[in-house]
Design a protein around this nucleic acid. Structure first.
Lengths: 278, 278
DNA sequence: TCCATGCGTTCCACTGAGCGGGACACTGCC
DNA sequence: GGCAGTGTCCCGCTCAGTGGAACGCATGGA
C-alpha cells in the first residue's frame, strides 16, 4: 500500500507524492516491494525497458536475477497484452503500444492537467515559449504536460519524463515550498547533468532560499546547456507545493523577459491553485 | 507469444498488427491469454480502468470474477509500483502516473513516429490544421502522434486513443491497402458513432473501393459530427499499409481544401514510406 | 436506535500455479 | 567444427497465490 499522506487536496493524483518507498532509478531493485511476487517481477521487467530500448530474454533474466525461463514466460505474457512487443528483426523485446494507450488514459484523467491546459495554452500564446506542467513524484518531477513553442522547429519528446528536482525550475520551486519533497531530494543525492547543475545540499538549500524569496524557481543551463526555465508553484490549501508550471526557452531569449514571465507564471499558478483546491 | 507475421519492415513497432488474438474492448475477457495467470489478471485489472476512471476493490473483483482479496492484493501490488493509485478522497483506485511515464517511453521510441514528426510539423504549418499519425493495431487505429492546429483553442486529449477503423480517415485508408486489417474490422463489426458512421460490411467495402480510387481516406462527420479528415497511407515494401497520416478540420473548412490537402498528404506519406522502408 | 448491507482490509489453510534446472535447436564467431 | 551465445520448451518440486471467512467501518432505511 502506498502510504497515505496528509494530502489536503486531491488534484494531484500522485498519492505516492513524497513518501514512495523507492522507485528504482538506475537498476531495478528486485524483490523489494509488497504483494504478488510474479506480478512485481513482471513490473520489474517493464522497468528494465526504462533503461534500455530493447532487451533479450537472457539479458533481462541476468538483470533481475531470475531464471531465463521465467523471464521468457513473463515476456510472453506481457506481449500477449501488448505491454511489450517483440522486434521481429532483432528478436529482442521492447515496450508496447498498449502501454502507451493506457498511459495516455492516465494522463488525460489527471484532474490538475485538465484544469491547467487552458492556462498553459494561454501562457504559451503570450510568451511564445514552451510551457510545462510538472508534478512532484518521489524526489523527481514528472512532466505531465508540455505545449511546445509555436516556432519550435523540432518537437522534443520530453513529455512524461522524470527529472531530478535539483536541475529543473519546477523541481526547485516545488522543493522550495514543500520541505518533504526537498528532503526526499537531499536523500536521493544530486546527480550532475551539466557543469551548471547543483551538486551539494548546501547549494541546493541556498537555491531554495533564493527561490522562496523570488517566488519562482529559475534554472540557467542546469539541465541543458543554453536553456533556461522559470517556474511558479501550484499549492494546496496548506500552502504546500505539489506541482508547478514553467516556461522554457534559450537562456539568451528568456533572460531579458525573466521578470515579466515570472509575473505571468505566478499569477497563473495562483489561479490554478485556487481552482484545484476549490 | 504474439503471432509473428510477415512484416517486411520494422518501422511499425506493433508486432501484433493485425492478428492479435483479442484485446478486450468493452469488458475484459478473463482467463483467456497465455502465460502467467496472476500477471495476466493484474493486466486485466489495468484494462478495467480503460472503461472506468475510478473503481473499487469489490467492483473489480466482480468484473473479473475473482475474489475480493485477490483484487485487493493485485491493486496494492500495482499501486506500489505506481501503475495504479488510490484516490484518498474517494478511496477508489485509478491509473497511476508511472504508467504514463512508461507509455511515453514506448511512444518516444516508436521509430515511425520519429521519422514522421518533422513531416507532421510541416504539414501542420502548411495546412494550418491538426495532423495525426495513426498506426494499425488489431481492428483499430491508435493515434501515435497528434500535433494540434496552431489556432485550436482547446487542446483535445485524443492522442493515444484507439479508434475503430471504419470511422476514421486513417482507418479507412489503411484498410483499403491492407486486406488483413480490413478483414479484422469486418469480423469486429461496425459500431455506430454518429448518424454518418458506416454500419454495414457492404458500405465499408464500397468506402474502401472509393478510397483506393482516390488514394486517400476521407471521413465527413463519421467520428465526430461536423469534423472531417483526410488520410494517406504509409506502406511497406510490399505495398501493404500499416499506418497513415491525416489532417483533420471542421468539415466546412476542410472540404474546399480537400484536393490540395490530399496531394500534400500523399506526397508526405510516400516519402515517409520510403524513409521507413529504407 | 438498531439492523442490514455495502465497502476495504486482513488472516489463513489448501493446492496448483509459477519457479528453476535442464534439454533442445539455432546462430555467429573464433 | 566446436564453443558460447541465444530463445524456446518441458518437467517435477514447492512455495506463492488463491478464495473464503472474519473484521471494522461506513451508510441508509426502518
Amino acid at each position: 500500500m502506498t502510504a497515505t499522506l496528509p494530502l489536503t487536496s486531491d488534484v494531484l493524483r500522485t498519492v505516492s507524492c513524497v513518501t514512495t518507498p523507492k522507485r528504482p532509478q538506475p537498476i531495478p531493485e528486485r524483490g523489494a516491494g509488497e504483494g504478488l511476487k510474479s506480478v512485481a517481477t513482471a513490473l520489474d521487467v517493464l522497468e528494465c525497458f526504462a533503461v534500455d530500448d530493447e532487451l533479450g530474454v537472457s539479458d533481462i533474466a541476468r538483470r533481475l536475477g531470475i531464471a531465463k525461463s521465467t523471464a521468457h514466460r513473463l515476456l510472453t505474457t506481457l506481449c500477449s497484452r501488448g505491454m511489450t512487443e517483440k522486434n521481429p528483426e532483432s528478436g529482442l523485446y521492447r515496450l508496447g503500444m498498449h502501454l502507451f494507450e493506457l498511459g495516455q488514459l492516465a494522463q488525460a484523467r489527471l484532474r490538475l492537467r485538465q484544469l491547467a491546459l487552458p492556462m498553459l495554452g494561454e501562457l504559451r500564446a503570450v510568451t511564445g515559449h514552451t510551457v510545462h506542467l510538472g508534478v512532484a513524484d518521489g524526489a523527481d518531477v514528472v512532466h505531465a504536460e508540455r505545449l511546445d513553442s509555436p516556432d519550435s522547429v523540432r518537437v522534443m519528446g520530453t513529455m512524461g519524463r522524470r527529472f531530478p528536482a535539483h536541475c529543473t525550475a519546477t523541481g526547485k520551486v516545488i522543493a522550495a515550498f514543500n520541505p518533504d519533497f526537498a528532503e526526499a531530494r537531499r536523500r536521493a543525492g544530486f546527480p550532475p547533468r551539466t557543469r551548471m547543475t547543483i551538486r551539494t545540499a548546501a547549494d541546493f538549500d541556498q537555491a531554495l532560499a533564493t527561490t522562496r524569496r523570488l517566488g519562482v524557481g529559475i534554472v540557467h543551463g542546469e539541465a541543458v546547456i543554453g536553456m533556461s526555465s522559470v517556474a511558479a508553484p501550484v499549492r494546496d490549501l496548506s500552502g504546500k507545493a505539489y506541482a508547478a508550471i514553467s516556461v522554457a526557452a534559450p537562456t539568451l531569449v528568456l533572460r531579458p523577459e525573466l521578470e515579466r514571465t515570472s509575473r505571468l507564471l505566478i499569477s497563473a499558478a495562483r489561479q490554478l491553485s485556487r481552482m484545484a483546491a476549490g
